[in-house]
Amino acid sequence: MKMIGRRWMAAFGLTLMTAACGTSDPTGAGEEAALIKRAPTLENEFTPVELEATIDNLVAEINKNSIEPMQMTVMLKTLSAFFAPIATGANRAMGELGVTGNVVGPLQQTGDQKADMEGQSRQIKQTVMEGAEGIGISPFGDGNVAALDEAVAKGVHVVTLDTDLASSKRSIYVGTNNKSAGTTAGKTLLALLPSGPGTVVIHGSLDPTWIDGKDRTQGAQGVLEAAGYRTLVRPVTWNQEGEADDVEWMKTQIETAEPPVVGLIGLFDLSYRCAMATEAADKPDLPVVTFDFNPKTVDYMREGRVKATHIQRQYYQGYLVPYILYGIKTLGLEATKSILAPQMVDDSRFNLGLDVVPGNKVDEYNSFLDSIGANQ
Rank of each mutant, 00 (worst) to 15 (best):
residue 66 S to H: 14
residue 60 A to N: 11
residue 43 E to S: 11
residue 82 F to V: 11
residue 49 V to K: 13
residue 67 I to D: 12
residue 61 E to K: 10
residue 75 M to G: 00
residue 32 E to G: 07
residue 43 E to P: 09
residue 88 T to C: 10
residue 46 F to N: 01
residue 83 F to W: 08
residue 69 P to M: 08
residue 79 L to S: 04
residue 43 E to N: 12
residue 29 A to Y: 12
residue 77 K to D: 05
residue 87 A to T: 02
residue 28 G to K: 02
residue 82 F to Q: 05
residue 79 L to R: 05
residue 85 P to C: 04
residue 57 N to S: 14
residue 62 I to F: 03
residue 64 K to R: 06
residue 35 L to S: 15
residue 64 K to S: 02
residue 36 I to R: 05
residue 42 L to W: 06
residue 67 I to Q: 08
residue 49 V to H: 13
residue 84 A to P: 00
residue 28 G to P: 04
residue 31 E to N: 13
residue 69 P to D: 04
residue 84 A to T: 04
residue 43 E to T: 13
residue 57 N to Q: 13
residue 73 T to E: 13
residue 48 P to Y: 03
residue 57 N to M: 11
residue 39 A to R: 07
residue 32 E to H: 13
residue 40 P to W: 10
residue 76 L to T: 02
residue 28 G to E: 06
residue 44 N to R: 06
residue 78 T to Y: 15
residue 59 V to M: 02
residue 45 E to G: 15
residue 45 E to N: 09
residue 75 M to W: 03
residue 43 E to L: 14
residue 34 A to T: 10
residue 91 N to G: 08
residue 64 K to H: 00
residue 35 L to G: 10
residue 76 L to Y: 12
residue 87 A to F: 03
residue 55 I to D: 01
residue 83 F to P: 03
residue 75 M to Y: 05
residue 72 M to V: 13
residue 60 A to H: 07
residue 33 A to R: 05
residue 53 A to V: 08
residue 59 V to G: 04
residue 54 T to D: 11
residue 42 L to G: 07
residue 66 S to I: 13
residue 83 F to L: 05
residue 50 E to D: 09
residue 29 A to L: 11
